[in-house]
Amino acid sequence: MKFKHVYIVLKKELKDIFRDKKTWIVTILLPALFIPIMMYIVIGGAESISEQKISDTKIAIIDEGNNQKFVNYLKSTGISIITDLQNPKESLEKGDIRAILIIPSDFGKNIEEGKNADLIIQVDMANMKSSNAENMIRSLIKEYANNIVKERLIAKGIDPKILDPIEVKTENIASQSKMAGSFLAFIVPMLLTLWTATGGMGAAVDLAAGEKERGTLEPLLTTSASRLSIMAGKYLAVTAMALLSAVASLLGLFASFSLNRNMASLNADFKMSTIAIIVMFIAAFFTASIFAALELALSAYAKSFKEGQTYISPLMFIAIIPAYLVMYKMPNEIPISYFAIPVFGTISIFKELLYGIINMTHIGIFVFSSMIYVAISIYIAALMFKQEWALFRV
């Protein structure tokens, strides 16, 4: 293998990749746009549910007695009350109202006599806003009940403060930077690993299976460059595109932080050391290197561009499944064995770095094991390029 030939092939492939608008749009532009759009949709949807205003919450009240005092209390809270519906349950199922509150006929009587009283809340648990409305109504009822208890205690000459003998105060010891890191550690490792692993797919399919289909691979193999040099040049091109995809996804992620008012403060408070950034890049490089070689090997084995896409697409699940398994784990909950497993190790390293943890033992295990996986994957890719039966299958 001659490095001069490797460089020539690498230069040629990168030129071809960037000439093809579809490839660089999918590899670079799509990751950069996908994350801000996804974050806007997900966070926007969550905000619309969590920030549901009490005045926008419509509920139907079925008063089976004369409980005007309680109804007036509910009206005073600002909640939207409807009492003239013909079929409240049907309106609830359609989503026109969020809940139905049924007040039994003896509710007011029991309260006046110092007894316990019942209320019935009907909700549609399949509707998130209806479920949230239930919590809202429960909190209003609890406040009303607390007022009744206080009135009863005062009537008996007892200080209502007796109900709250202990006052609990919560103090958050985490810094704003650590809070930001914990938020980022939840989603960034998954997205970054996913785009690092799959970012070179388009290039890998085109550089082997695509060239077979176009009839340009055979002339390239007849040049003075060895097959190993050709494979190495193509491999480096795919790796470069995977890393560019990862960088684009990161830029898209931080752009979404800047554009979203609720996340801009997190981005401002978040800080990463130079060592952490270097380690993150190394982790991304190893992941891109492993997947680039596997993608290129499968592409070399495929007879056509379409067949290459079919073979390579399942690799995405290899990246997605570990991402979800590690997503909900705290850094101290990650087993040490994870750092020696492809993809698991990458996500685990990213998560620790975003929490501000630089564990040299874990990094060492990850780097050593990754070097072995890279060597194995490159060997497989080289094997595909050396075998006539693999390159020129009929």
Rank of each mutant, 00 (worst) to 15 (best):
L266I: 12
S273E: 13
A248S: 14
A293M: 08
L294N: 02
M280F: 12
T239E: 02
I278P: 11
L251K: 01
F254Q: 01
S249P: 02
A302R: 09
L253M: 13
L251Y: 01
A237L: 01
S256E: 04
S265V: 13
S258A: 14
A237D: 00
F270V: 11
K271F: 13
A264H: 11
S256K: 10
A240V: 09
I290V: 14
L298C: 09
F254N: 03
E295I: 05
S226E: 06
A276W: 11
A302E: 04
S258L: 13
A268E: 15
S249Q: 10
I230R: 12
A232P: 02
T274H: 11
N260C: 03
A288M: 05
L294V: 12
S249C: 13
S249I: 11
A264N: 14
R227L: 06
I277M: 14
A232N: 03
A255Q: 00
K271R: 15
R227K: 15
S258E: 10
F291Q: 03
T239P: 00
A288T: 02
T287Y: 02
F281C: 12
A242W: 00
V238E: 00
L298I: 07
L296A: 05
T287N: 14
F270W: 13
A237Q: 01
Y235S: 04
A242F: 02
N262M: 10
K234M: 01
A240N: 00
Y301D: 01
D269T: 06
A293W: 06
K271V: 13
A293L: 06
L266D: 11
M231I: 01
S265M: 13
L298F: 14
S226D: 08
T274W: 13
L298W: 06
T287H: 08
V247R: 04
F254P: 04
L244N: 02
F254I: 09
F285L: 14
L228H: 08
A284L: 12
G233Q: 03
L294Q: 00
A240G: 01
I282W: 12
I275G: 03
N262R: 15
M272C: 12
A232Y: 07
F285V: 08
V279I: 15
D269I: 08
T239N: 03
A293N: 05
S299N: 11
A297Q: 07
Y235H: 01
T239D: 00
S299G: 14
A302T: 09
G252S: 04
T287R: 08
L251Q: 00
R261F: 09
A300L: 13
M272L: 15
S273V: 09
S249G: 05
A255L: 15
T287A: 11
S245C: 03
A232C: 07
T239I: 06
L250Y: 07
S299W: 10
A264Y: 13
A242K: 02
L259F: 14
I275F: 11
M280C: 12
G233Y: 05
Y235T: 00
M272S: 12
L294F: 07
A232D: 00
M231D: 03
L266R: 14
A284H: 02
A276Y: 11
M231Y: 11
M263D: 01
A242N: 02
A232V: 09
A284N: 09
M280E: 03
L228P: 00
S273T: 15
F291E: 01
A292F: 04
S273I: 08
Y301H: 09
L259V: 12
G252R: 06
